Every structure is written in C-alpha cells, then in structure tokens.
Amino acid sequence: MATQLRQSQRRRQVLSRERIVAAAIELLDAAGEGALTVRALSERLATGSGAIYHHVGNMNELLQVAIDSVIADALAALPADGSGATRTPEEEIRAVALGLFDAVTKHPWLAAQLAVQLTRSPWGPVTVRVFESIGRPVRSLGVPQPDWFAATSALVHYILGATTQNAQTPHDGETPRNEVDRAEFLAAASKAWQDLDPDDYPFVTAIAEQMRNHDDRRQFLTGIGLVLRGITTSYSSAEARGTGRTI
C-alpha cells in the first residue's frame, strides 16, 4: 500500500502542466487538432485521464494553452541581426512577422487557430501578444495615436493572412507536403496559368513563370515591406503637411 502511494505520488510529480502541453503540441504537429484527445494524450504520457484533468480543465482549454505556448516561444526567440545593435522599428516588425511565419510553418495546425483567436477571442492572450509585439514598433514609426489601431491591424491582418495561406496542412491531399510536392504543385499551377488565353488574361499569363519560381518567405517579406512603406510614407507625408493624419 505504501509502495503504491509512493509510486502514485511520483507520477503526479513527474506529470506537470508543462509536460502535458508539450505532449499536446506533439500530437497537434503530428496529425492536427483532431488528434488531440484525452485517450491519445493519456497513451502518450502513460497516465490516466484523471491525472491530465488535474492539470488542465478540458481539451479546449489545453488547446488554447498550447496555442499560447507556441506563440510565446516564437515571439521570445526572435532572430537577432548578429551585430548587437538595437533594431529599428521596421526591423522589429519584420522579426516578429518572421517569428510568426516560422511558427506556423513548423506547426501547420496553428494557422487556422490564429484566425480563430483574432476574430473570436480578441481579449485572449494570443491576440494580445501579437498586437503588443507589432504595436510597439508601429508606435515608434511615428504613427499618431488615433491611428495606432488601424496601422497595427493592417500589419497583423497581412501577417496572419499570409502565414495562413502559406501553411502546409498535413493530410490534405491537395496541399504540398514537402519541397518536391511544392515544386510539382507550382509547376502544374503555372502551366494552367500559361495555358489561359492571353487576350482574356494578359496579366495572369505574364506572371505565370514568376509564380512557379517564387519563394514563399521572400514573398512574405516583400508584402511586409510594402505595408511598412505605405505606413511610413503616408504618415511622413501627413506630418509634412502639418496634419499628422492620413487622408
């Protein structure tokens, strides 16, 4: 009896909330949101459902904690420029954007969840983390306070929208799972564009080869640059006119 009690106590000590969250993320990475069940988690952790519920309220709560954990880690490990110099606001925004982009690339299930967080849980920790990480450098760009939300929202919506589009979801027969599949997918799409009637689709046929050879990460950063130039140009022009606001 005493031995069983000690073994039970050791199991409770070893099984922590952090271990449960880590195991949940592993399941999500392997097969998506549908794989996160009490049974699968119990088998992975070699424990019972009661021990899991002792640390987390339910599977939905665990999913939310897993999302927040991944985002917190991504934003805490932003790539440095290597020089030790302080980043400019533009560099900080690009670093945050790439951190989120890479997090979704590593955890494809995260893409849909970020969209849900943004639209259904603006008060939640994930949305707040993302807005704070983007909003601080936006403020440093000289954007007037009445426009902080609009400018930050424009960046956040582009970043999350682009990362969602580029996410490669496992077990989706129409989505490329690796670089070879991606190359074949883009080649097929490019040929379909090239085969269109150039009189009806002059622009699409003209960019078909560019689409085949594009790099997702570079394209993503190009979009960030365009949004940032729009923000800085708009507000610097407004300041020169003495209005401090965009038109």
Rank of each mutant, 00 (worst) to 15 (best):
T163I: 02
A111F: 00
T3N: 12
M1R: 13
A95T: 04
A183E: 13
D215T: 03
N58G: 11
T243L: 10
G223Y: 00
G173L: 06
R19L: 10
D195Y: 05
T175I: 11
V227N: 06
L160K: 00
E33M: 09
E33C: 07
V180D: 13
T233Y: 10
L62M: 06
S133E: 07
D200C: 12
L155S: 03
F131A: 08
S49P: 06
G124P: 02
D195R: 07
A188T: 14
F203A: 12
R129H: 08
R44A: 07
T127K: 04
L5C: 09
E179Q: 13
V21T: 12
M1K: 14
A103H: 00
A206N: 14
L28Q: 02
R94Y: 04
A24Y: 00
R177M: 09
Q165M: 11
P170K: 07
H157A: 12
L28F: 02
G50P: 06
E61Q: 13
F220D: 00
A2K: 15
L15D: 04
A103I: 02
V204L: 15
R94F: 06
A72K: 10
G135A: 05
R10T: 10
A238D: 06
L186N: 10
L62W: 03
V126M: 03
A72N: 10
E174Y: 08
M59E: 08
I71W: 00
N166M: 11
